[in-house]
């Protein structure tokens, strides 16, 4: 087992751990807005680490270019999806207002 393999294993395990944490967060967080945090950050980092681990194991350009594309599209689309869901949830009142310390959006009239 070369040093690269060790790094690859660490990346794969760390990536899986972050994805697991994202899953736990999805079930434990109180409302949909908090859950969207779990769906963006640990999930994206977990995916990137798994991709990095795979790239270190494959070591050929045909596979690595595909992995790069997956990473780029995940980074570009995850925030947009979370934004759309969060926006709809807020507008339809599906959030827990009692958990908000400050709500500056409440004073703002959506158009």
């Amino acid at each position: 087992m070369s040093a690269l393999d060790v790094v690859a294993s660490v990346c794969l395990i760390a990536g899986a751990a972050f994805s697991l944490a994202a899953g736990i967060a999805l079930t434990r967080f109180p409302d949909i807005l908090s859950r969207m945090h779990a769906a963006t950050k640990p999930q994206v980092l977990g995916l990137l680490l798994v991709l990095l681990g795979c790239a270190l194991r494959f070591r050929n350009t045909v596979d690595i270019t595909t992995l790069v594309l997956i990473g780029v599209f995940a980074l570009a689309t995850a925030p947009v999806a979370a934004h759309m869901i969060g926006r709809v949830a807020y507008r339809s009142g599906e959030h827990r207002a009692d958990l908000l310390v400050i709500d500056e959006l409440a004073d703002h009239q959506p158009r």
Binding site: A17, F18, F29, P30, S34, A38, P42, L100, H108
Partner: peptide
């Protein structure tokens, strides 16, 4: 976020700021 998810205890508060 991962630590917050696994931490036992009360639910986290949040805020919306402009």
């Amino acid at each position: 976020v991962a630590a917050l998810a696994c931490r036992p205890g009360p639910q986290p508060h949040s805020a919306i700021i402009g």
